[in-house]
Design a protein around this nucleic acid. Sequence first.
DNA 1: TTGAAAGCGCTAACAT
DNA 2: ATGTTAGCGCTTTCAA
Lengths: 327, 327
Amino acid sequence: MRDVAKAAAVSLKTVSRVVNDEGGVRPETAARVHEAIVTLGFRRNDMARVLRQGRSSGTLGLVIEDVANPFYSDITRAVERVARSRGYLVIAGSSDEDPERERDLVRTLCERRVEGLLIVPAGDDHRFLLPDLHVGMAVVFMDRPPGGIQADTILIDNVDGARQATEHLLAHGHRRIGMVGDLPRIFTAVERHQGYAETMKDAGIGVDEQLIKLGPHDVAAAETASRELLGLSDPPTAIFAGNNRNTIGALRAIQATGSRAALIGFDDFELADMLATPVSVVTHSPAKMGRQAAELLCRRLAGDKAPPQRIRLPVSLVPRGSGEVPP
Amino acid sequence: MRDVAKAAAVSLKTVSRVVNDEGGVRPETAARVHEAIVTLGFRRNDMARVLRQGRSSGTLGLVIEDVANPFYSDITRAVERVARSRGYLVIAGSSDEDPERERDLVRTLCERRVEGLLIVPAGDDHRFLLPDLHVGMAVVFMDRPPGGIQADTILIDNVDGARQATEHLLAHGHRRIGMVGDLPRIFTAVERHQGYAETMKDAGIGVDEQLIKLGPHDVAAAETASRELLGLSDPPTAIFAGNNRNTIGALRAIQATGSRAALIGFDDFELADMLATPVSVVTHSPAKMGRQAAELLCRRLAGDKAPPQRIRLPVSLVPRGSGEVPP
DNA sequence: TTGAAAGCGCTAACAT
DNA sequence: ATGTTAGCGCTTTCAA
């Protein structure tokens, strides 16, 4: 900028005025400045600008597990849309479900002075965020609640979804219903398991622990677990899969073993309706969750001081065939 | 930091030493400083740090079309992996295939002083980047080449892929082969069309323009276009689909109309092997492209001054059934 | 309409 | 082992 000022034979401040369209500059002067800018290939340094202005960086931080999972890429997309409309840029990072990595990412993002943070938590203790919260950092949690702190949180109704799925299978005559779900340290896996177990108990059937596989976090592991279920001497006649990875794993197991077990998955996924037996799912909108979270964050950044909210987004069952297969 | 210094009754520089693990500080002093840091919830301001050090921001910019498309989320994931291993953070933005938006994004990223840029270009004129390139900005293009400038570029072998697909269909006896592809202003669509058209001509069949639909950019449009093809009085017996969105659209059209047209798609996609008729595809690795591009970018940032490279990644045909359906 | 000086939070270079 | 000073590139404040 100093170089531009020199080249245009004006003061630093005048260049600043031109660059920021502040007005109060004679057109001819402005023209000279513009020319110098083009000649020198000048780009305003946003870091210096932000530093001086004291305001934060115009960026939001996003911490998810893995962009390559459609659930998270849908969220990312929605967050980016909202951010863009408000003039923010998004710095996203994947925690890979590792609490330490999550903490690292958050620290780095805070050091970069993001204005707000959207987090799908991996860990269960977020007190390390307290100092930042006190300094005015806005944080909204998605899909899972934070541990040890109060903060805005957008969840989906996992228990209800699992209940709907299980009741649907019961209504179609199933009694031996298995479940394949994510790691039991993951909030959604626990809630979905809870919804399933409650419903089984309410139906007077109870839970056969043999039929429950909590742990598979990717498609391959879910397929293995599902094969184990289907290979039992008294196998389940239906499987409830706890998330999109688990559903696809279960689907592969069912197809590979030639089983005709019924299947309902949590999370919708592309082509679910196009498979040989279209897959019934509990559906909801990751994009909506991302949008709502980002909008809430922006409201906080705009000064909304209302007490932290906890929102539950509804889910619904989409019967497509696989959940209606009889025992 | 000043507050921390005051609280610990030391100088600014001592705090800086502690925060940056520079050593040369008595353990007791360091302890006092650490205590003050915790009490005050201090977080080093990375913008000031970067500003002072003159080095850039430790961030890479990534411009893609849309994270929600698995092709791009795979790239994003791979880029993030490499970036993380080198200590970089990634700021990603979606251009939505809009050249103006692409330019805006690039400008903003440059103002934020990203150290390097990875771009899947939307526009066809990137001369606006020349000033930044001269100032030492490193840029690597992915999937499509830049317009009007020389820069590192990682592409896939589109012509060869289209040729393989078309030859495969010809080998299975098809003569009326249709193509559904993306907007003709998109480089990959043009190359894939070229590969298809050349192969048809080489086979002595030539191209029937009626059978070619270049334009559909999402699944719905691709389905409509494919339905039109299948509805012709003399419809194609096979369809070559130019990318993952088009393949899924074509698939939906084929299934909905009850057609038994053969289908080969460019880009692999999840569950392609699980469909009623498993889908044959031309496969390649978006993740590999992202990784290579990011690694190349990092080499450039590390000082590699070799002339700009243009790399073509190979593709291969995966027959799964849909491409082997006879006419 | 224009400019000079001070300072954002930090670190490099040089004291002590 | 610790402190002082200057300055990164910009904007704010005040003066001309």
